[in-house]
Simulated scan of single mutants.
Amino acid sequence: MMDANARVIGEPGQWAAIVSGLGPAVCAELAERCRSLYTVTPGVVGQKSLPDHRVGHSRLLPRSALFEDVYQLIRDAGEALNRRYFELDLTDIVKPPQFLEYVEGRGHFHWHNDYGLERPLSKRKLTVSIQLSDGRDYEGGDFEVFGTPQPMPRAQGSIVVLPAFVHHKVTSVTSGVRCALVGWLAGPQLR
């Protein structure tokens, strides 16, 4: 599934990316497969007090034969970049990945981190975001990492990985639609 011509960039401890890691046909097929799922309202901790903190469409990918290749892609990309840039103790995916669509005028996710509250012994430790849209097909919608001066790569098929405790956001989409797959690798609680 990964493109042999992809290149790896990053900032140790902050973020890493496989630029153009997936080809356009793979991205289109993944997006189409994900669109077959039911839409759920994306939420955040404290959603009632921050109703506009995260706005977009979300679909949860079940752990099933239809999406096992996506789970494997998230594991493979996350583990490869973790060995090179982060060296976190990881176990597996403990929360379903999400297919996200941020649409014109109604798509953004303000500053947040993903270090989850799911299980006492297995927290989300690594975020894996896969850019399915062609970055030229929408305006705004930049994926930004706190303390990094430039947005993350928006080339279609790019895979951005960062420790789940690093703050990041998606700026407002002003035209078009930004689609991404996001998954998390968990591990023992940080000390």
Rank of each mutant, 00 (worst) to 15 (best):
V160M: 11
H110P: 03
Q156W: 10
H168P: 08
P120F: 11
Q189K: 13
R136V: 04
F67N: 00
E29N: 11
V170S: 13
P12W: 07
E29Q: 12
S49N: 14
A65E: 14
R84M: 12
P97R: 04
M2N: 08
V128H: 05
I130L: 06
G13R: 02
E79V: 03
L73D: 01
V55E: 10
G183C: 02
P188V: 05
K48F: 14
V8W: 04
H108P: 01
D134G: 01
S20F: 03
V177N: 03
P51N: 05
E29T: 10
H108F: 15
R191H: 06
E32L: 07
L100A: 09
R75H: 15
P163V: 06
A164P: 00
T91L: 13
P149V: 02
V44G: 02
Q150N: 15
V128M: 01
E11Q: 10
Y115W: 09
R119L: 15
V166A: 11
E11V: 06
V166H: 07
F99I: 07
A77E: 00
R33H: 02
H167T: 04
F146V: 05
D3F: 13
H112Q: 02
I93M: 13
S129T: 14
Q98Y: 01
Y138K: 05
P153T: 06
L126E: 07
C34S: 12
Y102D: 03
V177I: 06
E144K: 00
D92W: 13
R178W: 10
Q131P: 05
P149G: 11
F165C: 07
G107F: 08
I159L: 12
G23N: 14
R33F: 06
L100K: 00
R75S: 14
V177Y: 04
R59M: 13
P163C: 03
E32T: 09
P151Y: 10
P42S: 01
S158Q: 04
V173C: 13
R63K: 11
P97I: 03
L37C: 08
Q189G: 14
P24V: 09
D114Y: 11
L22I: 00
L162Q: 15
L61G: 06
S158A: 03
S175G: 08
P24Y: 10
E68L: 08
P149W: 11
N82M: 07
L181E: 07
G147M: 15
V94H: 12
V40L: 12
L88I: 02
V94C: 15
E104F: 09
L117V: 01
I9W: 14
S20W: 05
V55D: 13
S20E: 09
E87F: 14
D52L: 15
I74K: 02
L132S: 07
C34Q: 00
F109E: 02
R124Q: 00
D69R: 06
S172G: 15
A65S: 09
K125F: 02
D142Q: 15
V166N: 03
P163N: 05
V166W: 02
I74V: 14
D89P: 00
